[in-house]
């Protein structure tokens, strides 16, 4: 019961320099300071992180699952958008 009164936060972690912050989960916390501490305690116990972001879940604007067809299906037939028709020289390395 008490938990429903505690705001929900989304947690993003950057595991290495140069990578983007990645969504890893959510948590409950009364404010931003404690949300950041809880994110550290819950999601970085095994050396996962170099940087943590927390964002109030209600700040996220999400697509409607009912719009799935309109939003995402039209791309399925456009295989030419995938850069798979090129030979990448070995010297280029990781792309």
């Amino acid at each position: 019961m008490t938990e429903t009164m505690i705001p929900l936060w989304e947690v993003f972690i950057r595991s290495r320099n140069g990578l983007a912050h990645k969504h890893v989960g959510s948590l409950h916390a009364v404010d931003a300071t404690l949300a950041l501490q809880a994110a550290r305690d819950l999601y970085t116990r095994r050396g996962e992180g170099l940087s943590v972001w927390v964002v109030p879940s209600n700040a996220i604007v999400a697509s409607d699952p009912a719009d799935k067809g309109m939003m995402f299906e039209p791309t399925a037939s456009k295989i030419y958008r995938h850069p798979t028709f090129y030979d990448v020289p070995d010297e280029v390395g990781h792309m």
Partner: peptide, 11 residues
């Protein structure tokens, strides 16, 4: 009292 503090205390 909450899962988040469960983990904080264990840590």
């Amino acid at each position: 009292p909450i899962m988040e503090e469960e983990m904080a205390l264990a840590n």
